[in-house]
Simulated scan of single mutants.
Amino acid sequence: MRSMDNPSTSPDEQPGVAARRFGAFLTRAAMDAGFDVTPGAGGRVALAEASGMSASAIGRTVDGKTLPRPTQLAPLARAVGLDVRTLLVEAGVIPAELWSDDQKPPVRSVSLTPEDAADHWGITDPMVRRMLLSSVQEAIRLQQEVNDNQHGAVAGG
């Protein structure tokens, strides 16, 4: 079993280690961002407002009692001037290799036609293909109407 001070200790091995590590890192990041999160200083309330979390949730998090919910990570990271990856990796919640820039999916640079999509999805039945292609064409037509109406409203309005 690894020690409590070892940053590679798994939360499964030592309950609460990840929350304490995250809280310590968040405290430093918040202080660096101008939030004095020491109890009674007002920074916890300010950080709560900036992140959309409750003051009590911020208190539990910086005190190392709980981890934030996944939906709170991005607003919390923004509030302290970090991205989510940096927040999680630097706080020791996840190893850097689990979230590397190399794992981003490539950006498609070619257009995909409805026929290409049908081929890719394995839709070979002629009737099902016609239905799909017809639906896509109708969706494109309706979107064009919406775009034209929005453009007309802006130009006329």
Rank of each mutant, 00 (worst) to 15 (best):
G23T: 04
T38F: 01
D148P: 03
L87R: 04
A46C: 05
G16E: 01
M131A: 15
T27I: 00
K104T: 03
I94S: 02
L133H: 12
A41R: 15
T86S: 13
N149D: 10
P39I: 03
E115C: 02
F35T: 06
T9A: 14
K104G: 02
I140T: 12
M131Y: 12
A48Y: 09
K104D: 11
P114Q: 13
R44H: 04
L88W: 06
G64C: 07
A117N: 05
S100I: 07
L76C: 08
G40L: 10
K104N: 08
P15V: 10
S134G: 15
D32M: 01
D102T: 11
P7N: 04
R2A: 10
S111Q: 12
A19M: 02
T86D: 11
G42H: 06
P105K: 14
P126S: 09
P105Q: 14
A74N: 10
P75G: 06
I140K: 11
N149W: 04
P75E: 06
S54M: 01
D148Y: 09
L133G: 12
F22R: 00
A74L: 13
G122S: 12
I123R: 06
G52A: 13
M31V: 09
G59P: 00
D5T: 11
T113D: 04
F25L: 04
V37G: 03
P68K: 06
A29R: 09
V62P: 05
S54A: 11
L142P: 00
R2N: 12
P68W: 08
S51H: 09
M131L: 15
T113W: 09
D32F: 00
S54F: 01
H151I: 05
P95H: 12
S10E: 12
P70G: 09
G156K: 13
E138Q: 11
R85F: 06
V17G: 00
G157I: 05
V37M: 06
L73H: 08
R20A: 13
S3L: 10
G40Q: 13
I94H: 01
K65L: 08
L26G: 08
G43V: 05
R69G: 07
G157V: 07
S54R: 02
L112M: 15
D36Y: 07
T86G: 11
Q103D: 14
G157P: 03
A79Y: 01
M131Q: 15
T86E: 14
D102P: 01
A55E: 09
D101T: 14
A18T: 10
S100N: 10
G152N: 11
I123S: 03
S135V: 07
A50R: 09
V110R: 11
I140S: 10
A118Y: 07
V128S: 14
N149T: 09
T71E: 14
G81Q: 06
T86K: 03
V84S: 08
P95Q: 13
P114G: 15
G40A: 14
I123C: 06
V17P: 01
R44L: 04
L87G: 04
L47D: 02
L87P: 03
G122K: 13
P15I: 11
A118N: 05
P114K: 14
G42R: 10
L82T: 03
L98M: 11
M1K: 07
P75M: 02
A155R: 13
V89W: 08
M1D: 10
K65C: 00
K104I: 07
G34A: 06
A139N: 10
V89N: 13
G92C: 11
G92F: 13
